[in-house]
Design a protein around this nucleic acid. Structure first.
Lengths: 211, 211, 211, 211
DNA sequence: CATGAATGAGTATTCATTCAT
DNA sequence: GATGAATGAATACTCATTCAT
């Protein structure tokens, strides 16, 4: 048997058809949203045939889901690692905000589409997505928010944080970073943007007495 | 001007056909989103004919826009009044958060759909909306966020707030309240929920020294 | 309200859109069978728009079913009338064979398609038809065959017939007449063809002693 | 000719790839009909590759035709033998009915599909089959029915039968046996079923005077 | 010969919009 | 103004067939 580099379906450019399709789908879904994205457009961008898409993905819906999951996986892993790490809670939270920010710089559009499609992370809603498919999104989402929530809950227990509901705080964090990326407020320096959000989040906007 | 009772197309129930359509559209758009909402369903709910919709609104897109605008108008007015009011900045901000929260309890779904359709408040995007239509949404949005931004900028100038970009802070506020409503975190007591957000927003989640 | 002649959807030619579609569907289904018949072709023949078909019929499957049912209804009624009539069994059977023959001269193709789609009158089968739809066909079929069966059973009880299973005989009758029509054996004189079948059916092909 | 064991593509189980495909095709075509049968399913059942099918058969249509022909060949031979045999006509006819019945117990589904595809044994029709392909089916069919027809014609000439058109009688016979098999009326005892059909066919259903 | 990844022509169905009444 | 029958452009998905390995 031949090595990976000459596996079937590996193109001259070294990307498999499957990857070409995912890359094209990323662009089209991000730009158009789920409904307005057409398989035809994805196919044209992927430089492949329509049937090929359906060889790799059972339907448009699954293509979208797998795209989101594959794009999110590295981020999810990094997030889990930080959440489980040894640092104190504020440090973890700053790291997490940096991770989120960097992730959303690339994936804000895709995520916004996903969140729209699942319509409120679990509520019965407006997308065509099969309920069982929506549940998968919800689970992925809950796992991510859950990591953040855990860090905040730890911080509350250890006296580093106070006066907030950890779940609400976690969702707030996510929504603010998502908004930042989405509005283009992150700009060229994600690190700086992350710091700004972290400061606001940790200390609020009220001026503190210097003394 | 003639009285309501002699207005054209005022029905027995005292609602004009136009209003019946808007009410039905609100329900359907909120529940289904823009794309999955069908004119047929709106018409069925409005207890009117399909053609009638097109007598009052040039197309589905404009119907949606006008719906959003009419629903937002009272809120916008109240917001502007508070923003222009005499109170100090933190008080204003708390009031604003309360207004937002109450508004979104009813309109979170509609707004989320709108924001999705305009895709990022101005960025070139995924909806079918004509660019000029999107620009209208953007203007409405900017006006609303602008009021909040002004209050924060005032607070910064007067030394009540510190260490934040007023525009980012304003958008953050909006995104957090929207998320709260959307996730069902507001519950039965919007006032309490608003206070929680205000506290988090003004003071952050870091534990302050009691001394 | 206006009379039937000026009802909406009544065309200049006096046929409703619905009827135009059914007429076109009859031709196309008869000529092409269910699968190879395309809605496009039906629409072209019916001189109407594609959407119009779906205003009147929920889908291609239901269009086919309703077509078969409406085409069969008068025949079914006549059959039931004869079956319930006062004549003796052989006379009834001859009348029934005449009815079948005349009916199949026009509808053999449609019926063959239907029988193929229901694949064996009830067995689990090869068509795409929803099981519940197939059950409807089966019921219609059983009702028709049942009328014939009853006549034969009566004849057996009254000593006019002998030596046959009434159900099998009924199905045999149907299959032979269907075959005759299908093979073009009926020709210009359905009455004569019916007599030929009736003779064969009543007396067999064995030569009887003249004495 | 080489022995079976050294034939190309003879598998461990002793069936050639070609035969595996035919066996699988028999099952799938019988169960699903021509259109709904997919090459994919046949391939899966045959435990072979998709391309292999096209090495042995030019296309799905020819695969179906060859399948029908190979399945029918032994039956055709036996039928011809009986038809050409020395017995008297009624005996031959009874034998033929037995042959038909036994054959259709296994092949009724396949035949019904074939007859549907050729749509009326020669009439211009609804399948995608090339006209020249349909002509082949017609020839096979005519040959089979022709044998039966000859036996009946002989019987008429020799005074054993009377009062029937031999062609119509032959087709009737075929259609009744096919129907019996298809409706599951044959049951566990094909011999008995054949006798029942033969009796009905030879003597009709009219009660004869015992005297 | 055997294989199965790639392909695209073909089809049912939806739904915003129009317009004659 | 009110209505709803008619329309057709748009779109996801299937599956027979090919061909490079």
């Amino acid at each position: 048997m031949r090595g990976v580099l000459s596996d079937p379906a590996v193109c001259a450019e070294g990307r498999t058809k499957r990857q070409q399709i995912l890359d094209a789908a990323y662009q089209v879904f991000s730009r158009k949203g789920f409904h307005r994205a057409t398989v035809d457009e994805i196919v044209a961008l992927a430089d492949t045939g329509k049937g090929t898409v359906y060889n790799y993905f059972v339907n448009k819906e699954r293509l979208f889901y797998i795209l989101v999951r594959e794009r999110s996986a590295p981020f999810e892993a990094a997030l889990a690692e930080v959440a489980a790490g040894p640092e104190d809670s504020p440090t973890k939270l700053r790291k997490i905000i940096r991770l989120f920010t960097k992730f959303f710089v690339d994936n804000a559009d895709l995520w916004r589409v996903m969140i729209h499609e699942m319509r409120g992370v679990g509520a019965e809603g407006h997308s065509k997505l099969a309920p069982q498919q929506r549940e998968k999104y919800r689970e992925d989402m809950v796992r991510i928010v859950g990591d953040v929530e855990k860090v905040i809950r730890d911080g509350l227990a250890k006296g580093a944080f106070a006066g907030c509901d950890p779940k609400i705080a976690a969702y707030s964090l996510l929504s603010v970073v998502l908004m930042m990326a989405f509005q283009g407020f992150v700009g060229d320096d994600p690190e700086a943007a992350a710091e700004r959000v972290a400061d606001m989040f940790l200390h609020g906007i009220t001026k503190r007495d210097p003394g």
